[in-house]
Simulated assay, not measured.
Amino acid sequence: MDALTATLALLRLEALGPARYWQLLEQYHCPVSALHSLPAAVRSRLPARAQRQWADFREREADSELLRWVGDEIDRCAHAGARLIHHADDDYPGLLREIQRPPPVLYLRGDPAVLHLPQIAVVGARRATRAGLDNARAFSRELAAGGFAITSGLALGVDAAAHRGALDGGGVTLAVLGSGVDRLYPRGNGALAEEIIAGGGAVLSELPMHSAPEAGNFPRRNRIISGLSRGVLLVEAALRSGSLITARLALEQNREVFAIPGSIHNPMARGCHDLIKQGAALVETSADIVAQMGGVYIPATTTAPPGPPLTAEEEAIVTALGGDPRSLEQLAADTTAETGTLMATLLQMELAGLVEQVASGYQLTARGAAHLEAAG
């Protein structure tokens, strides 16, 4: 029996988990020995089904239910084009191996070489603002073009924008899942996952094949995202969010942590501001990250704002918004426009991707901010 087989068998025992696995390895130094010698103190803490599985293994070894499952799991991986990477393998990423109780086994679809590239994790809110999505995509595009692999969680919102930005920049990106690599979640991002793999990136999980995206899987997923990365960029996050947890894990793992500031009126900026108070670096451009992490900064090819020139009414709104959200009443006072006309202009600007509605009113998107910068 090899180490991978023994490790998969141990992890198959319900409630054993990575924490007890590493405790066993400290004691026995080898997963094969740990499986054969599972101490009574550990067995007594396992559910009855797991105890029966281990007893069956001790009696029948290769013909046991436990080892038959391992054989079937290896076959499932082969059928899905997934690779199993044991923590003792050369393909196992070195940075991830350094964290406390790393995943004993990784499931990977794609190119394992991406695990050894310098990685920046880009994380944030699922319900991000348009400006947040624009920032995630732009930062990821420039960082990927500069030689960093972009790591994120394939979720809706900032995660998907980060993966897309990396692909737009001609770089590679890694999606870490809270489900099995053959059960992509959310389903709407399945095509994006396949594009990530086709583009030289990979989809990664520590969970067995067919694993469902259960809520308890995502904190485990988050420690992998931060553990793989040299630095973590938080784009937008509420004060209580999984993305903020990922960034805090990165601080605990001695990774570099960056946060994009926002308006004090934007609830999605509060997580970033809280993280900056805890010591995260405030960044305004991807060049700020490159300067601290190394790499090559490749600036945008054009500084001209996209789209047709603004009308006088649109220019007045862009100037009034500046860098902060404004309510409809405030915009009416700032622009002296009649309310009906103002609302019609704002609707056209929303459709053009220049402004977006937030809780406190309206704010500029990245495209709108480009017009403001050009005018200034």
Rank of each mutant, 00 (worst) to 15 (best):
V257I: 05
F258R: 12
P261R: 08
I264T: 14
I264Y: 02
I264A: 03
H265V: 01
H265F: 08
P267S: 11
M268H: 14
M268F: 13
R270P: 14
R270Q: 15
R270C: 09
G271S: 15
G271E: 11
C272A: 10
C272D: 01
C272F: 02
C272K: 01
H273D: 01
K277R: 15
G279F: 14
A280C: 06
A280K: 09
V283E: 00
V283K: 00
V283S: 00
T285I: 05
T285S: 11
S286W: 09
A287C: 10
A287T: 10
D288I: 08
I289Y: 05
I289T: 04
I289C: 07
I289E: 08
A291H: 12
A291Q: 14
M293Y: 05
G294A: 00
G294T: 01
V296M: 02
I298V: 06
P299E: 04
T301M: 04
T302G: 03
T302Y: 02
T302P: 02
T303V: 08
P305R: 14
P305L: 09
P306S: 06
P306F: 03
P306H: 06
P308S: 06
P308I: 08
P308R: 12
T311N: 07
T311Y: 05
A312L: 10
A312K: 12
E313D: 05
E313T: 05
E313S: 09
E314K: 09
E315I: 05
A316E: 10
A316N: 12
A316L: 07
V318L: 06
A320E: 11
